[in-house]
């Protein structure tokens, strides 16, 4: 189930893939729009999945991907291919934008109201209960400190290794381990509180 998130980016391929991404980005910066199409086809599907796993909402995930790619286009003229990989950079931007949205969602519409309505109308449905559980998970993710939230999402929703997460977040591996461990503990606690409140069965 984690294989999908790693598609096309096995370690042996990574540097070749990164070089091709950099070449396409340079071609775009030099005025070749077809390079942008190729680059989008290479990078956007994975970014869409990443945002989708974090947000659980297709329309919001699409907005995040469009915004992330827009930032990539704007970066293109100053891109230093030796210093950053486009795919790593995109993981970071999508994680940032998605975390922002989870946090904004929490501020704008506290999940409790929607949850209780759904719960009272069709609490017998397993599907609805799973939907509610995932909504609760994402709400709790949005309630974590930003870096913890990103590290947990990259580790446990994207299935990335700690070294890759370290590269994406520009920190060392021990810091990643610490963030994911603290983040998971905080998630367990937050979800336990919610389950107690709503009486979900496990």
């Amino acid at each position: 189930m984690m294989e999908g998130s790693r598609s096309g980016r096995a370690p042996a391929e990574t540097s070749r893939e990164a070089a091709e991404d950099a070449r396409l980005l340079a071609a775009y910066a030099a005025g070749d729009l077809s390079a942008a199409r190729l680059l989008t086809a290479r990078l956007a599907p994975r970014a869409l999945a990443q945002a989708g796993r974090m947000l659980g909402d297709r329309a919001e995930a699409e907005d995040v991907v469009q915004e992330a790619m827009l930032r990539l286009w704007r970066q293109a003229p100053e891109w230093r291919s030796g210093e950053a990989k486009a795919s790593t950079w995109l993981y970071r931007v999508v994680a940032n934008l998605s975390t922002d949205r989870l946090r904004a969602r929490r501020r704008q519409a506290p999940i409790e109201d929607a949850e209780r309505i759904e719960d009272s109308s069709e609490s017998a449905s397993d599907r609805l209960q799973q939907k509610a559980r995932l909504a609760a998970l994402r709400d709790a993710l949005g309630g974590l400190p930003e870096r913890q939230s990103q590290a947990v999402a990259l580790r446990h929703l994207e299935g990335l290794g700690n070294e890759q997460i370290a590269e994406i977040m520009d920190i060392n591996v021990r810091a990643v381990e610490s963030l994911t461990a603290r983040g998971k503990r905080a998630l367990v606690a937050a979800l336990a509180r919610r389950k107690d409140e709503l009486g979900f069965e496990e």
Partner: peptide
């Protein structure tokens, strides 16, 4: 989505 992204790319093209 591809069209939205490429419209941005065209608009931002150096």
């Amino acid at each position: 989505l591809m069209a939205r992204i490429l419209a941005d790319a065209a608009a931002e093209m150096p």
